[in-house]
Amino acid sequence: MSQRNLYRIIDDNFKYIAIAPVIIVLVLLVLMPVGRLFATSFTEVKFVSGGLLFNPVGFINYLTAFKDAIAARALLNTTLLALISVSVEVVIAVVLALSVGYIKRGNTFFRTIFIFPMLLPPIAIGVMWLMIYDFNYGVLNSVLAFFGVRGPAWLANNMLAFPSIIIVDIWHWTSFVFLIVLAGVETLPHELSESGRIDGATELQIIRKIQLPILRPIIMTAIVTRTIFAFKVYEQIYLLTDGGPGNRTEVISSYIMRVYFNENRMGYASALSVLTLIFIAALVLFFYQLQKRVFNERGGKA
C-alpha cells in the first residue's frame, strides 16, 4: 500500500526528514539577508534619484574599519563586557542552580525568582536601573543620602560607568544561564550521585567529580550563547549611558546602528557587521579550544 510505503520511507529517511524543516527555514530566510550583507559591505550606498545606488568600492570599507578608533573601542568594551559578565554569570548561575537542587521546600519559589529578570523587556530593565543609579533621583543615592553619604554619579563617572553597566548585565542575564543550567541539573542521573555518596564522597567532591562533568556541555552552550548575546546589548545601554562618559560604554551594536542609520553609511555598517561576526566567531572558537585544552578531551560533541 502506498500509505504503508510512505510510512516506510519516512521511517528510513527520518534522519533527513527531521532536519529538513530547519534547513529549509534557514535557507529561505537567512541566505538572502546574509548575501546582501556581504555584497553591501563592498559598496558605498547612496540615495540617488529616488532609489539606492550601490557603488562598488572594493575593500575600502574594511580598510576604514581597521583605522576606526571608535569601532575598536566599542569592540573592546563589548568584549570586556562579555568576558566579565559572562564569567560572573556562569559562576553565580551554576552555584544557584545546584543549590536550588539541594533544597526541597521553597524550591519552586526560588527558581521562579531567579528566572524572573529575563522576563522583563530590556527597555524596562534600562529604566529600572536608571531609577536606581541616577545621580539626582536614583534610589541608591537617596538611600545613601539618608545615611548622610553623598553618592557618586554611578552612570556618569569615568571610573564607575562601565562597572555599573556590567552589574546591570549580570543582574539581567544570570537568569538566562540559570535557566539553562537548571534544566541540565534536573536531568542529572541521581543514581551516580547516590553511589558517590555511598562511597563516602563529600558533597563538594560529588559536584566536582560527577555533576559538573555531566553538566559541562550544557554550561558550554550557555557560555557560548550568552557571549553571542552580549554582543547584541543595546537598548539598556542606550537608555542608561548612551555610550558615555566619553565612549567608555559605547558598544559595537549601537555603533553599527549609528553608522548605518544616523551616518547613513550602509556599506560601512555592513563591513563592520561582517568584521564583528568574524570576531565573535573567533572568540567562540577560542572558547571551544580552551575547553578542550583545559579538560584535555574531545569537546562537547557526541
Partner: peptide, 14 residues
C-alpha cells in the same frame, strides 16, 4: 550635578 557627562535633553528638562 556630578553626572553632567550624562546630560541630554531629557535630563536637563527633568
Amino acid at each position: 550635578p556630578d553626572d553632567y557627562t550624562n546630560f541630554g535633553q531629557a535630563q536637563m528638562i527633568s
